[in-house]
Design a protein around this nucleic acid. Structure first.
Length: 309
DNA sequence: AAGACGAAAGTGGTTGA
DNA sequence: TCAACAACTTTCGTCTT
């Protein structure tokens, strides 16, 4: 969900009015519309009769993954169900032409972008909820003009990355980069930009979230997996996790867990699936070893003593 | 020969003046 | 806006199995 801004970005006023009917968040002082088409959790049906039970709805559910939220109606092609003659046909064609013109630049952009989003999301096998969230983020970004000056694809990738993080099924920047064909740093940049501008708050990603995926990529047993989660928790307590790349920590704990469970994987294998280098794994691994005294639980490898200055 | 290890130099991002 | 800084990567040489 998008966090509502506390202040008006224009005049810094904190008195904001939420207009539920129009789905807008408006600054009381300067009248700036801060948020358009907010998600409205109120009932979305209207009731004209006095009875309590008839809450009928029709049509497909509203969704952000369609550029018109699944609500669009097209004026049909010539030769549709209705056969019109002469004047009727002229009027019909005029209407069609107008509808075409009315599809604004924003809608056309959205249409393209959401197609791209769908492609990338299915490439990464992301659940529909994530895709929906990403679509919503992208829609908001377009409304705020954040796409200007950046490629549509990179914003799509950024939105997807953010949506993954919010659903606690993080993908690495590398994976998104590969799926979208956007450079890794570009994805990261637009991701940061978009989340900052939209005020989306994202928890620092938790290394634990990466474990199941990495473990299955390495074909590690369930015991090893839970072992590495244990290690992660210990690392958390020992304050080894803050400020470090979460993937590096996840990879190291997985590596250690695999060693202790006789399911040894090489550092390179682990490094590859986690998208970090062996060196990073080694560093994390060394830290885990020294600060967590895992020594008693380990079999043979006994890293050399590191003298501190 | 392959994997593990570590040192040194380089990269991109954050932070604080 | 710039410099300092931490985390991470790349590269390369050495050691171990």
């Amino acid at each position: 969900m998008v966090k509502k801004p506390k202040k008006c970005p224009e005049c810094k006023s904190t008195t904001l009015i939420s207009d539920k009917d129009r789905g807008e968040l408006v600054c009381k002082d300067c009248g700036l519309v801060i948020e358009e088409r907010m998600v409205d959790f109120g009932q979305e049906w209207r009731e004209f009769e006095n009875t309590q039970q008839s809450r009928r709805r029709t049509g497909a559910p509203m969704t952000y993954t369609r550029y018109d939220r699944g609500l669009g109606t097209d004026i049909g092609q010539k030769g549709d169900i209705f056969q019109l003659q002469g004047k009727g046909m002229n009027k019909f064609m005029r209407l069609r032409k107008w509808q075409h013109r009315i599809s604004t630049a924003i809608e056309r952009n959205l249409k393209l972008a959401l197609a791209e989003l769908k492609r990338v999301a299915s490439f990464l096998k992301l659940p529909a909820a994530v895709e929906e969230e990403a679509a919503k983020i992208y829609t908001l970004a377009v409304q705020r003009g954040l796409v200007r000056g950046r490629s549509m694809e990179s914003v799509v990738a950024g939105a997807l990355y953010a949506a993954c993080r919010r659903h606690e099924i993080p993908r690495t920047l590398d994976e998104l980069s590969e799926a979208s064909g956007i450079e890794k740093k570009e994805v990261g940049r637009t991701y940061r930009f978009v989340t900052r501008e939209l005020g989306i708050r994202i928890l620092p990603s938790n290394p634990v979230d990466y474990i199941p995926r990495f473990a299955s990529a390495l074909k590690l047993s369930a015991e090893t997996q839970s072992k590495s989660v244990e290690i992660l928790e210990m690392a958390e307590k020992a304050d080894l996790t803050s400020g470090r790349g979460p993937t590096g920590i996840a990879a190291a704990s997985l590596y250690v867990a695999a060693l202790t469970n006789d399911e040894k994987r090489t550092q390179r294998e682990v490094a590859d699936v986690a998208g970090v280098t062996e060196v990073t794994i080694r560093n994390r691994y060394k830290e885990l070893f020294n600060k967590l005294n895992l020594k008693d639980k380990m079999k043979k490898p006994e890293p050399k003593k590191v003298e501190e200055e």
